[in-house]
Write a protein that binds this DNA or RNA. Structure first.
Length: 289
DNA sequence: ACCTCGACCTGCAAGC
DNA sequence: TGCTTGCAGGTCGAGG
């Protein structure tokens, strides 16, 4: 799924249809996604005006006039459509994809916002805004990688003493929130750091950031900003709500590039793939140390 | 407390 | 052609 740049792209695409609009009714097409919908889920949405649509990590957060917040997570294969028109110039939904339309928000102005998720790893949940600080799903989340709280100091402190690999640390949403398998690979490559390196090597014994930590923070910020600027990455499942494809997949330098030559100037290595923590890691062993 | 691994689900592509 | 296998952008909870 959708990592931070894709979720942010979805947020921006949904904003015009959702912000300021009122939810007239909610059509729940099944009782559960990753877990069951709350019994009062639809009732708490019906009739509510959406004041704003935000994002925290990979969660979309719709602020409702009632004081509730609708949290939405796209899992691995979740996506939205606005309206009933075929989505975009590149893609027309097939009938067998419509069976995965699980939630339809019927807005008072007549438009519909449809959540589709074949694998159903995504979910939605309503939480009182006043209770957000105690929300278990948000509680342990680390800083936003594009926010002020995320810097080399913070990354080093979070990694200090960690015996896990750098790859595992960056995928850990408690350390930094929003990265996934693609952008971790791309950031580590740009920073010239091995995914196998121990996370603790980003900090000195005193816990201060090393030069590696500084480089990595810059690489993370850079790759996320570039991806957001072009609408995220489009793999087989994901597309923007307006149907347009993201373009960042054309800018992948290592992810899904097994066997390709390393493009770092003067490197001459080859991009390799191996399994790490049950997921594919792509990297160049020659220039990532 | 840490860390690893399996589980959750469907669809697609590659291999036989 | 059809079957089987492995893989996919995430995360949680059980177990070591």
């Amino acid at each position: 799924m959708p990592e931070l740049p894709e979720v942010e792209t979805v947020r921006r695409g949904l904003q015009p249809a959702m912000e300021g609009a009122r939810i007239a009714a909610v059509d729940l097409r099944r009782a559960d996604l990753r877990f069951p919908f709350q019994p009062d889920f639809a009732a708490r949405l019906a009739g509510q005006r959406i004041l704003g649509l935000g994002r925290r990590a990979k969660y979309l957060m719709a602020d409702l006039a009632s004081g509730d917040v609708l949290m939405m997570h796209l899992g691995m294969s979740g996506s939205f459509r606005v309206g009933t028109m075929p989505i975009g110039e590149f893609h027309h939904p097939r009938n067998d994809e419509l069976v995965h339309d699980h939630v339809v928000l019927k807005m008072a102005n007549g438009t519909t916002v449809t959540y589709n998720d074949p694998r159903r790893f995504g979910f939605m949940k309503v939480v009182a805004r006043a209770a957000l600080d105690d929300e278990p799903l948000l509680k342990g989340l680390g800083p936003e990688p594009l926010g002020n709280a995320f810097d080399a100091q913070a990354l080093a402190a979070a990694c200090a003493g960690k015996t896990v690999s750098l790859k595992a640390a960056l995928l850990d949403q408690r350390i930094v929130a929003g990265l996934g398998n693609i952008y971790v690979a791309e950031a580590l490559y740009r920073a010239g750091l091995s995914p196998k390196r121990r996370a603790s090597t980003l900090a000195t014994r005193g816990g201060a950031p090393t030069a590696h930590a500084v480089r990595l923070v810059e690489a993370i910020r850079e790759v996320l900003n570039e991806a957001i600027a072009v609408g995220g990455s489009t793999l087989r499942d994901h597309r923007q709500p307006d149907g347009n494809l993201g373009y960042f997949q054309h800018s992948f330098r290592v992810y899904d590039h097994e066997g390709a030559p390393c493009t770092m100037p003067g490197c001459g290595g080859t991009i390799r793939r191996f399994a790490q923590h049950g997921r594919s890691t792509f990297w160049c062993a020659k220039c990532q140390k």
